[in-house]
Nucleic acid binder design. Sequence first.
DNA 1: CCTCTCATTCTGGTATGGTAGAATACCACC
DNA 2: GGTGGTATTCTACCATACCAGAATGAGAGG
Lengths: 225, 225
Amino acid sequence: MQESTELFERRTTADVVFEQLYGEIASLELLPGTKLSEADVARRFGVSRQPVREALSRLGNLELVLVRPQRATIVRGFSLQRVAYARFVRLAIELEVITQACAVWDASCTSALQRNLDLQHKILETEPEQFHSLDLRFHLLICELAGCPLAAEAITECRQKIDRLCTLSLARQSEAATLLADHEKLAKALQAKSVDRALAITRQHLSRLDSTIKEIHSEHSEYFE
Amino acid sequence: MQESTELFERRTTADVVFEQLYGEIASLELLPGTKLSEADVARRFGVSRQPVREALSRLGNLELVLVRPQRATIVRGFSLQRVAYARFVRLAIELEVITQACAVWDASCTSALQRNLDLQHKILETEPEQFHSLDLRFHLLICELAGCPLAAEAITECRQKIDRLCTLSLARQSEAATLLADHEKLAKALQAKSVDRALAITRQHLSRLDSTIKEIHSEHSEYFE
DNA sequence: CCTCTCATTCTGGTATGGTAGAATACCACC
DNA sequence: GGTGGTATTCTACCATACCAGAATGAGAGG
């Protein structure tokens, strides 16, 4: 979505700091509530405060940190509202993608999707921890096949907003099997070009996240704000 | 969506510069391609480069400007792709909102919506230039009535991305009448809780933007990138 | 007249110092 | 011992100076 015109991206100090901090926040190495002083971070990275400031500003735009002038900058916790927002948008996008997909679906689409499904089965048995990324690939693939590459961007954006939650919802292979079954059913509905069935499956598929979120909320309420 | 926890917002210099530049870009006082040198802008506002830098960075996040290190920072033109992206997301959101609305619609919703429609009629005769804002209100109102305040945020966000285009598409009262007719039909479909009809009307309603965009693209191709 | 080279100038990125405001800790005073 | 005021210490913000890369222009060489 960004920097499409210029491909040579100068690697700036602010970029490095930003990406490092982003990673640490997303992976929960930096827990919500952690104070991120410009000076401290600058010392830690051995750079000046300016690029740190820039990086924190960007994190603030993504609502990952809350910068309170003259007070402090802290890592924000999860917000049920923001999660719900991302969920809603994601659902809306997926539904429209499926609608479009049904309109243009053909045999080549089915086979392309089937290759991804085969991979999912294999991964689920060998390296189940990789299932999540393949899950995402599955949905993005449908976007492409439906002729909506834009939707893929939108979905990716939604996922970024709840990246950290996914970190907490690991070790759920039992659910992975359920999700894969959903994917299978969805593929069949697409093949049959049955819009209503595909939409219903999509709704149910995404709604499975809600219970997961609920559990996380009760288990780790300290991470919420 | 932002700064919900802290209500006292310190008005920082960077904020002022940002909002001023944002306004000028959105209103097309600053045309696409205009160079925005940090130093120049700083001199113009009588501040140092630092807050200007911050402001430009934020504008970059919104993709309103393109900052090219060691080269220059320029106002970005419209991008058909980004417009299409906003359009797609908007459509997806609206469709889901309508679906939800049909599920919960009752008489009170109908009357609330009718009040807005009456206003639209009156405005269209007296101050047609105000119709656009009322149009937006109409859609946001449906979000609220449908119990999806989150959708309202999403729609607002989409509109911001094509704010500048709206500036160009003024003076189109003839279309306003068409849009109002759509609104009327949509209201009837909602009252009848006819999901399919409501969705179809919504699709047609939003697709009317496409021709407008096309015209603008051919009339002002110099503003596109 | 064209072309290549190099110096000048402009760009954004970085480092550093200083400032105002908010929080905190401390101490006098009740 | 509890309370109120004050000084210290933090914070992010702003201004200034300097840097390296990129564009631009002029001049030398063909």
